[in-house]
Design a protein around this nucleic acid. Sequence first.
DNA 1: AGCTGTGGCAGGGAGG
DNA 2: CCTCCCTGCCAC
Length: 786
Amino acid sequence: MNPLLYGHNLEERIVAVQQIDDGTMRLHFRGKDGLSSRDERFYPFFYLTDGRYLDDFERKRWVKKLEGHLSYQYLCAFEEWPAMWDAVRHVLETHNRESLTKADSYADLDTLYLNTDPVTQFLMQTGRTLFKGMTFEELHRIQLDIETYTSPPHRFSNPSRPGDRIILIALSDNLGWSHVIDGKKHSEKEMLAELAKILSEKDPDVIEGHNVIGFDLSYILKRAELNELTLPLGRGKALPKVYEGRTPYGEIPFETTAIEIPGRQIIDTLLLVQGYDSVKRAMESHSLKYAAKYFGLTSPDRTYIEGDKISWHWDHDPEPLKAYALDDVNEVRLLSEHLSETPFYLTRIVPGNYGHVARMGSAAKIESLMVREYIRLKHSLPHPQEGAQTSGGYTNVFQVGVLGPIIHADIESLYPSIMVTKEIAPASDTNKVFLSLLKELTATRLEAKRTARRLKDPVKKSRQEAMQSSLKILINSFYGYLGYNRALFNDYKAADAVTQTGQQMLKQMIDHVEKRGGKVVEVDTDGVFFVPPEDVEGEERELAFVQELSDVMPEGITVALDGRYRKMMSYKKKNYALLTYDERIRVKGSSLISRSMERFARTYIHSCIDYLLNNDIEAIHKLYGEHREAIQGHKLAVAEFARVETLRDSLEQYEQQVATGKRNRSAAYEVALASGKPYRVGDRVAYYITGSDPNARSFDNCKSAEEWDPNFPDENVPYYLRRLDEYSEKFTDFFQPQDFRAIFSAEELFSFDPRGIVPLVTPVPAEPSESPQDSPPRQFGIWIDA
DNA sequence: AGCTGTGGCAGGGAGG
DNA sequence: CCTCCCTGCCAC
């Protein structure tokens, strides 16, 4: 077993655990051959925290005291203050000095570690340890959703408000069981006791729900407290642990609450959806209903009840509520199956339990791997570097217009490959763990990829696929970790070396394509779009050409064919569209496709691109005319022309910042304020522009989309016509000026003649390159450990 | 409270 | 009109 990837050994499986007096764990394993074996092992890893048990003042004091390589992260791991102080005192006494410096032995800390309660430690770790060797299907997962009563006129239920309470608890599991605890038949206290009883009998490994941490569990625990009931929801009747986050303004305790239930893992599908969308950025909302639809998990006869109708239903027509709640837990189960397999398999590798790994970011995962190995080596940890990274990927556009055929060649895993081949690693990583980890994870990924290809069984195949794709994300984060200002092992010079090398390699690829007679259209970071030389025709020759590119690259760097396209519309850097050989269109870039645009604009631009790539100029002219007419004739529904924005700050904060001149007025906030409704951070506001001035300032001519009345449409027609023209102007560079004017004009169709209009191709002149001494030196802020 | 990085486009508003 | 700054969203 490779110690770096401790826990990844699938040959063994822990079947039982026993605590020995001195705190050592006795773990019982069963080998793959089915034979039992026994191993006594000191429990090797603790729960790494970010020092939340230390207040800032104390932490800084220790950071200062333990200069250079420090141990504070290790010491912070102790749950209780007294235990930590004992540890510090003991270490200092043993070493007979006032402070720890470099590379002190941690032998003594092993002894101190015994001071923490091993059972608690173990239960915290069950996700990582007991689940090792298990498959996702073997987990017993229970889904939970509560419905609450809200006393009118409030919009959100509040567990502390008289009259508000839990009215239904819906449960289901992955074995086909489901149940509703009915608030009409039981008092709230009985409902909560029933929940504890069911959890104890069913004894699930995992509790799942959408916003289950932020809402359901918080609400349940608060109501239990008010009902003076202790809720043994954990294994061995352990009580849930609640960590109230310290918010500076002390509001909305829901959002900062962390909950742990010993022996069980909590999976919040809201967090999984947010994590998924933070990479993809394609979802309009992170609600359960939207996410279920987005992933195609909704059943056709599902019951929907609006949040503000729940209390009404409870009073007048309670039956549909049960169906609704059961549909919710059903969707949670499917959503979780879709998104939690990845973090589940990562718990084999990353220290931390399943619930924790599901919430961890990439940098936290890498850091925990690094720290675990340093502790295993009994070596101290470095302090984060001050400063900032100064460079990134190379991006350029060489041709604007419609071109084809197109090859997209990209360098496979550019940054990880550079780090491995050029041995770029943090300078502070004296034990050379970083690169070993990177290489080991890459090898593990390739193995999973090979296995996935080999397997026939779709379930096993998809498991390997989930494993390899989760490793890919982790591997790609190693570069980001180098430039992360809070990383213990960050190294900005190393990060810059990686991007600089990447730039060189991309330019090398561009040069070679041009040398061979290809026409480079657009490049970004690790890939090149180009029209191949004339002699390169057909897929086979294109592949051979890409192989040629690969051969001129340095050892260890591979170029692959990422895609081949009939045509490409090159617009600006990071903004383009592709026409595939099976006639599909792919649009990329914030100026061509963005959620901040009006919906009519998104479809309009998409259609224009479609017609442009298919050389149907007449259709563009027609489309433009139709849109003009629709706007002028008030034929668009409000959803088509409304803008939807997310409120990122509270209304109070917005008003205060506007009053002090720190911020401009903005339409979304003005609409929210005018509505008088209790908007909260994260709520989305849909609004449109009124009046008749095409250049109206949006913040004093805006109205909520809900107020729009199709019988008395008051949207600002000149304004929306101007928007249409602005969107049309994106296509200026694709035509001769007179052609452009003819296409995007309101003239009748019969007077428009598309013959002879051909989309242009324009080479982009090279930007004047800045000589380094001309640019002012980059200013660095003062580093503050917040 | 928790957070992987840089590069790039566009829109709104304020002020010259 | 232009420039600057800020924010949002997106590509990799």
